[in-house]
Amino acid sequence: MSHDHSNPLPSYMKVFYSLMALTVLTVLAAKQLTFPHEWGTPGDILHVAIGVVIAVIKVIAVMYIFMHLKFDHPMLRFFVYIPVFLFLVFGFALNFLESFTYTH
């Protein structure tokens, strides 16, 4: 066995319940907050920020507990960090180029 945690079952159940609760929270937040009619306004940013933050928390929980990143060799984390970093660069670059095209 590659990980040394002896009884992971309580952690698994905590993650499971957390994922369920956070999913419900995502839906409630999306349904309760009114959407603005324009992109990039504070209301739109708030919607996206809440959805993204909750999704990231859920993903970290799954990766660290279900996928054992917390218990396995730290080197494996780079298989996540590097693609995520590249995605952020890619996302920012695309958005910057898009807005640059519209403003110039």
């Binding site: 999913t23 999306a30 349904k31 907050l33 739109d44 999704a55 799954v62 990766m63 279900f66 996928m67």
Partner: peptide
């Protein structure tokens, strides 16, 4: 299999919830 779950965790709010007119 967990990765498949992870991707859905992002796809679900992106396509179904973080879009205007949903309310």
């Amino acid at each position: 299999w967990h990765f498949v779950d992870l991707m859905w965790i992002f796809i679900f709010p992106a396509l179904y919830l973080m879009i205007p007119y949903h309310v």
